[in-house]
Simulated scan of single mutants.
Amino acid sequence: MTQKIFIPLCLFFLVTSLFVGCKENLAKSVQVEVVTDDVKPFFKLSLAQWSLHRAIGNNELDPLDFAEKAKAMGFEGIEYVSGLYTKKLESMGMEALQEALKEKSKAHGVENVLIMIDGEGDLAASDEKERNQAVENHKKWVDAAQFLGCHSIRVNLFGSNNEDEWIANATIGLKRLAEYGQSKGINIIVENHGGFSSNAGLLVQVMKKIDMANCGTLPDFGNFCVKREGGGKWDGKCIDEYDKYKGVEEMMPYAKGVSAKSYDFDADGNETTLDYPRFLKIVKDSGYRGFMGVEFEGSNVSEEKGIELTRDLLLKIGKELSK
Rank of each mutant, 00 (worst) to 15 (best):
Pro8Trp: 14
Ser17Trp: 13
Gly21Asp: 07
Gly21Cys: 07
Cys22Phe: 15
Cys22Val: 09
Lys23Tyr: 12
Lys23His: 04
Leu26Ser: 12
Val30Gly: 01
Gln31Pro: 02
Val34Tyr: 06
Lys40Gly: 08
Pro41Glu: 05
Ser46Trp: 07
Ala48Phe: 14
Trp50Thr: 01
His53Cys: 05
Gly57Leu: 03
Asn58Gln: 10
Asn59Phe: 05
Asp62His: 05
Pro63Tyr: 08
Leu64Tyr: 14
Glu68His: 06
Lys69Met: 15
Ala72Cys: 06
Glu76Gly: 07
Gly77Pro: 12
Tyr80Asn: 14
Ser82Thr: 12
Leu84Gly: 10
Thr86Trp: 10
Ser91Tyr: 03
Met92Gln: 10
Gly93Ala: 03
Glu95Asn: 14
Glu99Ser: 11
Lys102Ser: 06
Glu103Lys: 15
Ser105Gln: 10
Lys106Glu: 15
Ala107Arg: 11
Ala107Gln: 15
Val110Thr: 08
Glu111Gln: 07
Ile115Gly: 09
Glu120Met: 15
Glu120Tyr: 12
Glu120Arg: 15
Asp122Gln: 15
Leu123Gly: 09
Ala124Gly: 00
Ala124Val: 00
Ala125Pro: 06
Ala125Met: 09
Arg131Asn: 09
Gln133Val: 06
Gln133Phe: 06
Val135Ile: 14
Val142Glu: 04
Val142Thr: 03
Asp143Leu: 09
Ala145Pro: 13
Gln146Leu: 05
Cys150Leu: 10
His151Gly: 04
Leu157His: 06
Gly159Trp: 01
Ser160Glu: 13
Ser160Tyr: 01
Asn161Glu: 02
Asp164His: 01
Asp164Phe: 01
Glu165Val: 00
Ile167Glu: 00
Ala168Ile: 00
Asn169Asp: 08
Gly173Thr: 02
Leu177Asn: 01
Ala178Gln: 04
Tyr180Ser: 02
Gly181Thr: 05
Gln182Lys: 12
Gln182Thr: 01
Gln182Cys: 00
Lys184Tyr: 09
Ile186Ser: 02
Ile186Thr: 00
Ile186Lys: 00
Ile189Phe: 07
Gly194Tyr: 00
Leu202Asn: 00
Leu203Asp: 01
Val204His: 08
Val206His: 00
Cys215Met: 13
Asp220Gly: 08
Phe221Pro: 08
Cys225Val: 15
Arg228Glu: 07
Trp234Tyr: 12
Tyr242Trp: 12
Gly247Ser: 13
Glu250Arg: 01
Met251Tyr: 07
Pro253Glu: 15
Pro253Arg: 10
Ala255Tyr: 11
Ala255Met: 13
Lys256Gln: 14
Ser259Thr: 06
Ser262Tyr: 08
Gly269Glu: 10
Gly269Cys: 11
Thr273Pro: 01
Thr273Phe: 06
Tyr276Arg: 03
Leu280Lys: 04
Leu280His: 08
Lys281Trp: 09
Ile282Phe: 11
Asp285Ser: 12
Ser286Gly: 13
Ser286Cys: 10
Gly287Asp: 14
Tyr288Lys: 04
Val294Arg: 03
Gly298Trp: 03
Ser299Asn: 13
Ser299Gln: 14
Ser299Ile: 11
Asn300Pro: 02
Asn300Phe: 08
Val301Phe: 03
Val301His: 06
Glu304Gln: 09
Gly306Asn: 02
Ile307Ser: 03
Glu308Lys: 14
Leu313Met: 10
Lys316Trp: 10
Gly318Phe: 01
